[in-house]
Design a protein around this nucleic acid. Structure first.
Lengths: 142, 142
DNA sequence: TTAAAATAATTGATATATCAATTAAGTTTT
DNA sequence: AAAACTTAATTGATATATCAATTATTTTAA
């Protein structure tokens, strides 16, 4: 047990790093000019149209500063627009552009392929257990 | 199954992020001026005294550029020294200083506490399964 | 209802991640 | 031995992570 204790975080780190690199490489190979993090942010806005940047940061496990900068880049890339929320002028309304919607739609198939590739040969029950372990770690670290 | 597929990477990402934040916070609270990544690099050099930067980068899943910069900071912090390897002048010999050895020794107890806290209440068999799943993902993404 | 507290977002500073290009030193080929 | 190739490390550019400090706005409390 002691040895595995030492190594589980190492493997968590390694697996997510490799998956992200793999996913990013596939996006690049298909000519998509977007990062995994940017993709995730647009995806969350599409699914939660009234979300604030602060709520967004909690949803994607990034801090406010990171979200601000990712959004800046998304606006520069013309995937996103923002305007002050008249109901609370501290907040912004985030609006995915046509171009933003399009790239998400086009990228979707590759994302699914990436997941299938990464999870190939893994038993559903084992995956469920792994997920439960991860959720437990999340709870413990909060 | 499909839904879990969608969420497992989300939880992998979330768990390692929270664990790193927790671990970093604990180090800071105890007054240690070192990052988790820097700690890992020193640890690897101590355990592999003849390791090159390139080998190091493979061991800690970082690329050469990141390792170069982490080593620069470790040298600045006086935890590490490096000198050209006379047998192959492209390489460096990495030497942990007394101060570097000391901080690793002093930090050890906190690292163990962090791991115990993060893994509390997780069954050994389930942990083993989770680890196997992660290793499988690693293999699949290579 | 004004002062204090809380919230949302930004900015600055520093660390790390990633890719591409470059430099320097070794190795292989012809 | 010189040219071509390979390897090790660095550097530059850009993206993200994290903390602390700041600004603007809203809410709460005195």
């Amino acid at each position: 047990m002691e040895k595995l204790n030492n190594i589980i975080f190492y493997n968590i780190d390694h697996s997510i790093r490799l998956y992200r690199m793999y996913a990013q490489k596939k996006l690049r190979e298909h000519g998509f000019k977007i990062t995994i993090d940017q993709w995730l942010v647009i995806k969350c806005i599409l699914e939660n149209p009234t979300i604030t940047q602060h709520e967004l940061s909690e949803l994607v496990f990034k801090d406010n500063a990171s979200v601000t900068r990712i959004i800046d880049l998304l606006i520069k890339a013309n995937y996103l627009e923002k305007e002050i929320n008249p109901d609370d002028r501290r907040k912004f309304i985030l609006q995915v552009t046509k171009s933003g919607e399009e790239i998400i739609k086009n990228v979707q198939e590759i994302i699914l392929q990436n997941r299938n590739k990464a999870l190939k040969g893994i038993d559903a029950k084992e995956l469920e257990i792994a997920d439960a372990v991860l959720r437990k770690i999340i709870t413990n670290c909060k």
